[in-house]
């Protein structure tokens, strides 16, 4: 078995250390090594967005990041979106707006949408569709996802 590398990183605000082979993707280590199975593998090729996490504040497909590249990075996964036992407004709005059916794409959409709202607190429908086009959903037809993100944006803005 190949030699393993020691990586120190921050995941969802907690300093985390792990050992990995250079060939292991960040997605594989999150899921298999760290039991953070909320990030999903849909294509393992950067085409579906189900594995989206934030790396230093930007959304990335964790299947296209080597785990060794996470050294010194700040990572946010779906497990880090709810805070102190409270759902993030995006999560709450996805539930109220029925923006998920099977739910497999949902973690990737919520992380991607959070990255979007962090930068653009009031996105248009077009901006939501353009910026999240790297996230595929096969169940909903996307309609309720747009509406739920817009609703969350409104709630976040009225809260500040």
């Amino acid at each position: 078995m190949a030699k393993k590398t020691h990586v120190t990183t921050t995941i969802n605000g907690e300093e985390t250390e792990f050992l990995c082979e250079p060939r292991q993707s960040l997605l594989e280590v999150l899921r298999e090594g760290l039991d953070l199975t909320g990030s999903k593998e849909g294509c393992n090729n950067g085409n579906c967005g189900a594995c989206t996490v934030m790396l230093n504040g930007l959304p990335v497909d964790s299947c296209l990041v080597l785990a060794v590249e996470a050294e010194g990075a700040e990572i946010t996964t779906i497990e880090g979106i709810a805070q102190q036992g409270h759902l993030h407004p995006l999560q709450q709005c996805f539930l109220e707006g029925a923006a998920l059916q099977c739910g497999i794409c949902t973690p990737g959409f919520i992380v991607g949408a959070k990255a979007l709202l962090d930068r653009n607190p009031n996105p248009t429908e077009e901006e939501i569709r353009f910026n999240l086009a790297g996230n595929l959903c096969r169940c909903t037809g996307y309609d309720k996802i747009v509406r739920s993100i817009q609703e969350a944006a409104e709630r976040l803005q009225s809260a500040t």
């Binding site: 899921r31 199975t37 779906i78 539930l95 029925a98 998920l100 739910g103």
Partner: peptide
């Protein structure tokens, strides 16, 4: 009416266990 689905919180927080999540 439109209540929140019972499995909803698990599915928006990444806790829901899909086939590949069992270990």
């Amino acid at each position: 009416t439109r209540p929140i689905r019972h499995d909803g919180a698990d599915k928006v927080t990444g806790k829901a266990k899909y086939g590949a999540d069992v270990k």
